[in-house]
Write a protein that binds this DNA or RNA. Structure first.
Length: 506
DNA sequence: GTAGGGTTAG
C-alpha cells in the first residue's frame, strides 16, 4: 500500500498512512518511506526518517549509501560505510556495488582496490553486480590486468559482464581486444553492439564503427545516435547528416539526443538550410525540448550565421544553464556584436549563473572583435579576482590579440613575458599577426623567433615576415623569405575556417 | 524496501 503511493509520487499520502498506523510499522515500511524520500529528492525528510528508525538493517544502510551517491557526497559515503560496520552490519553485494560506483571518478577512487580486497574477504567478488562495478573501477585506473582478473572471478557471467569487458578494452585503447571479446560473447544485446560501435568511435576508427553499425540488425535509437554523433565528433558532418537522413527514412524515431547531434552537424558545416530543416522536423515530431536540445539549437543558429534566430530560441528557453549562456555569448562574439555579448554576460552574472573559463574566452574574444581594450582588460582581471578562474593560454591569446590589434604591441609583449607558463604557438602567432597588421618588423621578428622555437618552418612566420618586410621596402629579405618558402618545408596553409584558426594570414 | 553496460549542447 505505502509502496503504491510512493510509486505514484504521492509521498504525502504515503507519510499519512505510515503515521496513522504505528502498530504495523516494521523495518520494511521504514525503508520504503526512507527510499521514497530519497527518490523524490526530499533529503531532509529522508535524513529525519533515517534518524528516527528504531532498527536499521543492511538495506537501510544501502539506501543511505545510494542517497549519498545521488547527492554526490563522497566523504559521506565513505563515513557511512564505516559507520555501518561499527553498527555491526555485514555489507552485502548491494553495498559493494553501490560503494564502488559511488567512489568512481572521485578522490576516493584510490580506495577501490582495497574495497576489492574487502569484497574478496566477504566472498562477494564473484557476484555479477560487484564484478561489473569493479571492472568499471579498474578500467578507470587503466589497469588491464585487474580488469581481466575481476572478469575471470565472476562465477556466472552475464551479458552485462561481457559488455563491461568490451567497454573496458575500448576505454583502454585496445579495440582489437575489445573486438575479440565481442566475438567470443555467448550472447549479445543491442547494448553490446552500441558499446562496440561507440568504442571504435572513441578510438577514432570510424570505418570499423560504421561496418559494425551496418552489420547490426536490430538498430535502436541509441545505436543510430551513437553513430551519428561519432561522425560529428570527428568532423564528418556530411556523413552525420546523411546517416540522419537514412534514420529518418527508417522506422526508428530520433530522440532529443539524436536531434542534438544532427543540429551539431549542421552547425559544424554552417548549413543554415539543413539546420532549419532539422529544427522543423524536431517541432513536427513533438520531441519535448530540454535545455541541452535548446542549447544545440542556439548554437546551430549562431554558428550558421542567424544570430537573431539564436537569440529568439535563447530568450524563449524557460531554463538556461552555463552552457546556454556561453553559446549565445560566443555567438555574439563571432558575429562581432561585442556590446551585446557584454550585456548578455552582465545578465548572466546577475541571474546568478557563475561564469567559467569558456565564458571568459567568449567575453574576451567579443572584446577583441569590438576593439574594447579597457573592458577586455577589466574582465581579464576580474576573472581571477572575482571568480577565482586562472587565466589559461586561450585567455592570454585573446588579450595579446586585443592589445595587438589596438596597436598596443608593447603591452602585448609585456603580457606574454609575464605569463606564468611558456607561450604556445597560438599566442606567438597572434602576436605575429597583429605585428603584421601594424607592420612592426622588430616585434614581428621577436614573435617569429618565438614560433620558431616551438615549431620550425611554420608557414605563417614566412608569410607575415615577408609582408612586413615588403611593406618596409626590404625587398632582398622578401625574396630570401619567398625562396625559403619555396624550397623549405613551409608551404602556405590551405585557408581554413576563421573560427578554427587564430593565425590570420592577410 | 537497495545494485551493474550503450546516445546530446558551449
Amino acid at each position: 500500500m505505502i509502496n503504491g503511493y510512493i510509486r505514484n509520487d504521492k509521498m504525502n499520502d504515503a507519510r499519512q498512512l505510515f503515521d496513522e498506523n504505528p502498530l504495523s510499522r516494521n523495518v520494511v515500511s521504514w525503508n520504503s518511506l526512507f527510499s521514497g524520500y530519497i527518490k523524490h529528492d526530499q533529503i531532509h525528510l529522508a535524513q529525519q526518517v533515517f534518524d528516527e528508525m528504531p532498527v536499521r538493517d543492511v538495506i537501510s544502510w544501502n539506501i543511505m549509501l545510494s542517497g549519498l551517491h545521488k547527492m554526490r557526497n563522497r566523504r559521506g559515503i565513505y563515513h557511512c560505510f564505516l559507520q555501518m560496520g561499527r553498527d555491526g552490519l555485514r555489507p552485502n553485494e548491494f553495498t559493494f556495488s553501490i560503494l564502488i560506483s559511488a567512489l568512481m571518478n572521485t578522490g576516493f577512487s584510490l580506495l577501490i582496490p582495497q574495497i576489492h580486497g574487502l569484497a574478496f574477504q566477504f566472498s562477494l567478488n564473484s557476484s555479477l553486480f560487484v564484478g561489473s562495478a569493479l571492472m568499471r573501477g579498474y578500467t578507470y585506473f587503466g589497469d588491464r590486468k585487474n580488469l581481466c582478473q575481476v572478469f575471470d572471478e565472476i562465477s556466472v557471467k552475464d551479458v552485462t559482464s561481457w559488455n563491461a569487458l568490451v567497454l573496458g578494452y575500448m576505454e583502454l585503447g585496445l579495440p582489437g581486444e575489445a573486438r575479440r571479446a565481442f566475438d567470443m560473447m555467448p550472447e549479445k544485446n543491442i547494448i553490446s553492439w552500441t558499446t562496440l560501435v561507440d568504442g571504435y568511435i572513441c578510438n577514432k576508427k570510424l570505418d570499423e564503427a560504421r561496418s559494425i553499425f551496418d552489420e547490426c540488425s536490430e538498430r535502436n535509437v541509441v545505436l543510430w545516435t551513437a553513430m551519428i554523433s561519432g561522425y560529428v565528433q570527428w568532423g564528418e558532418f556530411v556523413h552525420a547528416l546523411e546517416l540522419f537522413l537514412l534514420m529518418w527514412k527508417s522506422d526508428t524515431r530520433p530522440n532529443q539526443f539524436t536531434f542534438s547531434s544532427a543540429l551539431d552537424a549542421c552547425a559544424g558545416c554552417s548549413s543554415l538550410l539543413t539546420g532549419k530543416q532539422v529544427h522543423s522536423n524536431m517541432l513536427k515530431s513533438g520531441i519535448p525540448s530540454d535545455v541541452i536540445l535548446s542549447t544545440s539549437l542556439v548554437d546551430m543558429y549562431a554558428k550558421c550565421g542567424d544570430i537573431e534566430a539564436a537569440f529568439c530560441i535563447f530568450e524563449s528557453m524557460p531554463k538556461k544553464n552555463l552552457v546556454s549562456w556561453n553559446s549565445i555569448i560566443g555567438g555574439c562574439a563571432r558575429h562581432g556584436l561585442a556590446t551585446r555579448a557584454l550585456e548578455v554576460f552582465e545578465r548572466m552574472t546577475m541571474s546568478g549563473v557563475e561564469p567559467d573559463r569558456i565564458t571568459f574566452v567568449n567575453v574576451l574574444s567579443a572584446c577583441v572583435h569590438g576593439g574594447l581594450v579597457e573592458e577586455g582588460k577589466r574582465h581579464f582581471n576580474s576573472m581571477g579576482t572575482d571568480y577565482g578562474i586562472k587565466a589559461e593560454m586561450e585567455h592570454y591569446a585573446c588579450m595579446v590579440d586585443l592589445y595587438g590589434r589596438a596597436g598596443f604591441l608593447e603591452r602585448a609583449v609585456k603580457l606574454i613575458e609575464g605569463m606564468p607558463f611558456e607561450p604556445d604557438v597560438v599566442v606567438w602567432g597572434t602576436l605575429l599577426a597583429t605585428c603584421g597588421l601594424h607592420s612592426s618588423l622588430e616585434l614581428g621578428e621577436f614573435a617569429a623567433k618565438g614560433i620558431h622555437t616551438l615549431q620550425k618552418d611554420h608557414p605563417a612566420v614566412y608569410l607575415l615576415l615577408s609582408k612586413i618586410h615588403s611593406e618596409q621596402g626590404i625587398w632582398d629579405s622578401v625574396i630570401e623569405l619567398r625562396k625559403m618558402m619555396k624550397h623549405g618545408r613551409a608551404k602556405k596553409q590551405k585557408a581554413g575556417s576563421w573560427i578554427e584558426s587564430s593565425i590570420v594570414v592577410q
